[in-house]
């Protein structure tokens, strides 16, 4: 890890000003990803502005029934929050399926959104990587691509976004509130992360000095019947091969509202709009679920040895929707 200087910010204004005014400064949240990346010589900030102790650690109910989650709320606190558990179980489950209890106690909500990929070649400074060193090439192509994406990837980068929480949040239409010296702006989470295209090094639409201060969840009636399903090699403490966040609202056997997002298969948390379109208004049958999965995966493409992911994603989508149907139709 290169030497750097450290500043603890007492308030948001100071924090954003500090990063704005200092070249190569970065915000530091729980540190569970950034400190690792610095130690691995992938990130080299000169200044860290610690925002983990900013007073943004509340979860508040909004007048419309939604929730406002402060950016420094720890992952574990979010998962345990009674309103999250009852109104948005998918969010709680997504958090609890990620990392370990120790890391969840450290990691912040804001930091979780900005996690960087776990692509093996991104992590290996001896390998070319367009994300780490723009223009150097992508060593994953022709190498190990088991954890590469099947949707939204480019010839320059096939890396996936590793967050579990983001997948649940994007399914629910979360909005991210961002603060900078230029003021506040609100960004739908679906628009926060960028697809790699020719610039995989630019992972989000945020400017360097923009600080995530909160995430807002709108009221989603379907979310009460929601679920996060994570498929991974180990039973716990592993990143997703494929994950599915889903919410279904049923009227009899008709789907009146559907939310679906996918993780582990794309450079960003992947809102499955095509699938939602098929599901909404349709009957909750295995055939519908198959059709929805097929619609979403229509454009999916295998990269090297990850063809299994297309089939695994299809099956996981169907299985998750099936479970929600059984549970949603329970009296």
């Amino acid at each position: 890890m290169r030497a750097f200087s450290y500043v603890s910010a007492p308030d948001v204004a100071t924090a954003v000003r500090a990063v704005s005014e200092t070249p190569n400064a970065k915000f530091l949240g729980g540190g569970t990803n950034l400190v690792d990346l610095m130690r691995e010589n992938i990130e080299h900030p000169d200044v860290l502005v610690d925002v983990s102790r900013l007073p943004l650690n509340g979860v508040e109910e909004l007048p419309d029934g939604g929730l406002r989650i402060g950016a420094t709320v720890r992952n574990s606190a979010l998962a345990a929050h009674p309103l999250v558990r009852t109104r948005y179980p998918v969010v709680s489950q997504a958090v609890l399926n990620g990392a370990s209890a120790q890391l969840r106690n450290m990691a912040t909500v804001g930091g979780n959104l900005l996690q960087r990929t776990r692509c093996l070649y991104f992590y290996d400074t001896a390998s070319p990587c367009n994300k780490r060193e723009p223009g150097s090439g992508c060593a994953a192509l022709g190498g190990f691509t088991r954890d590469a994406g099947i949707l939204g990837v480019s010839e320059r980068c096939v890396a996936t976004h590793p967050s579990d929480l983001c997948v649940a949040l994007v399914a629910l239409g979360a909005v991210v509130e961002v603060e900078s010296t230029r003021g506040t702006r609100r960004i739908p989470l679906t628009d926060l992360h960028r697809l790699p295209a020719d610039t995989p090094q630019r992972e989000t639409v945020l400017e360097r000095d923009e600080l995530i201060t909160a995430v807002e969840l709108p009221p989603v009636p379907a979310a009460a019947n929601s679920r996060y399903r994570k498929v991974r090699d180990r039973a716990s403490y592993a990143f997703a091969l494929v994950s599915v966040a889903a919410a279904l609202r049923l009227d009899g056997d008709t789907i009146t509202e559907a939310r679906l997002a996918l993780g582990g298969i794309a450079p960003k948390p992947w809102r499955a709009n095509e699938a939602e379109h098929v599901l909404t208004g349709a009957r909750a049958t295995e055939e519908t679920f198959d059709r929805a999965a097929a619609a979403e995966l229509d454009r999916a493409q295998a990269v090297g040895d990850n063809a299994f992911k297309i089939e695994l994603t299809r099956r996981t989508i169907v299985a998750t929707l099936r479970e929600l149907t059984h549970e949603g139709s329970r009296p």
């Binding site: 776990r118 070649y121 992590y123 290996d124 190498g143 190990f144 180990r234 039973a235 716990s236 592993a238």
Partner: peptide, 20 residues
């Protein structure tokens, strides 16, 4: 292609955890 180990970590090389 290179003879290089690409998962030289305990997050990349999985050993059993309690839940397994």
């Amino acid at each position: 292609r290179t003879g290089r180990i690409m998962n030289p970590s305990l997050s990349g090389y999985h050993v059993p955890v309690h839940a397994d």
